[in-house]
Simulated assay, not measured.
Amino acid sequence: MAKRKQLDDFRVPFFNGGKADKGFSFADFDPRAKPFSTGAKQADRERLIAYAAQLDEMQERLHAQRRERVLLVLQGMDTAGKDGTIRAVFHEVDPLGLRIATFRAPTLTETAHDFLWRVHQQAPAAGELTIFNRSHYEDVLVPRVRGELRADEIERRYAHIRHFEALLADSGTAILKCFLHISKDEQRERLQARIDDATKHWKFDLADIDARHQWDDYQAAYVDALAATSTEHAPWYVIPADSKSHRNLMVAALLLRLFESLKLQYPPAKESLQGITIS
């Protein structure tokens, strides 16, 4: 009998000794796999509902304490499902302590500063769960594929990212980074669906086709970026994402595990409120 997959089987090896793990490859991860699915759609839906309720309670404790911070980074090729993951996994979470930051092409003001300037402003505050829908990794991936950065500049940016994430972790931020791994065939179907449905045209950009033509370049850039920045305090996980329901379950399970590791409790009761009766 095949061994059942564990969450950490999908973790990118930690960066160690000043070098990325050159053995890491997406070839070891099947984007069509559904190792954390029950195999039944209704059962998966019920399981995600249960996860969502638990996430809501955990986030409420986080917000009530206002001490720790949680950062979830979502990256992936176009149509990998970053928006869909947010809708499906966090629909029960109280928006009071949830914030979503989306990183598009930098503005003129942002490009006048260092590449992490705009990102640090979006880091979670105490008591916040923040989701990066795309992230600071865009500022290495895109210019690398376009040939706008020299190899030494790319390596320096990896180092800056490691130090930046270490700073966040040292300041009480728990970090989880998920690469939503879809196949090229699945991306073609999702892009075509956006073209065929007029109500989804707003989600489509002709630049998506250009990026698809550079699929291999982006895949290589992602492999290098993940290998160079997966650390114990900010690990990367490869999420098989051809199945949307499996993708959602796995991200929710990883985030729940992170929350549980924080051992969050509600603040202690206030003695000054003992015996008070509201008339």
Rank of each mutant, 00 (worst) to 15 (best):
P143H: 07
P143S: 09
V145Q: 04
R146S: 11
L149V: 07
L149G: 02
R150E: 11
A151T: 14
I154V: 13
R156C: 03
R156F: 03
H160R: 11
I161L: 12
E165W: 06
L167D: 08
D170H: 09
A174Y: 02
L176E: 02
C178H: 06
H181Q: 07
I182H: 05
K184H: 13
D185M: 10
Q187Y: 01
Q187S: 05
L191W: 05
L191E: 02
A193K: 15
A193R: 15
I195T: 10
D196S: 13
A198C: 04
T199I: 12
H201E: 05
W202F: 14
F204W: 08
F204S: 05
D205S: 10
A207F: 10
I209L: 14
D210Q: 12
Q214M: 14
D216R: 15
D217L: 15
Y218H: 11
Q219P: 01
A221P: 00
Y222P: 04
Y222V: 10
D224P: 02
A228Y: 04
S230P: 01
P235E: 11
P235I: 10
W236C: 05
Y237E: 01
V238A: 06
I239W: 00
A241R: 02
A241Q: 03
S243C: 11
K244T: 07
S245A: 14
L249T: 02
M250Q: 08
A252F: 01
A253V: 00
A253E: 08
L254Y: 00
R257D: 15
E260P: 01
E260C: 04
Q265P: 01
A269L: 11
E271Q: 10
E271V: 12
E271T: 09
Q274G: 13
Q274H: 15
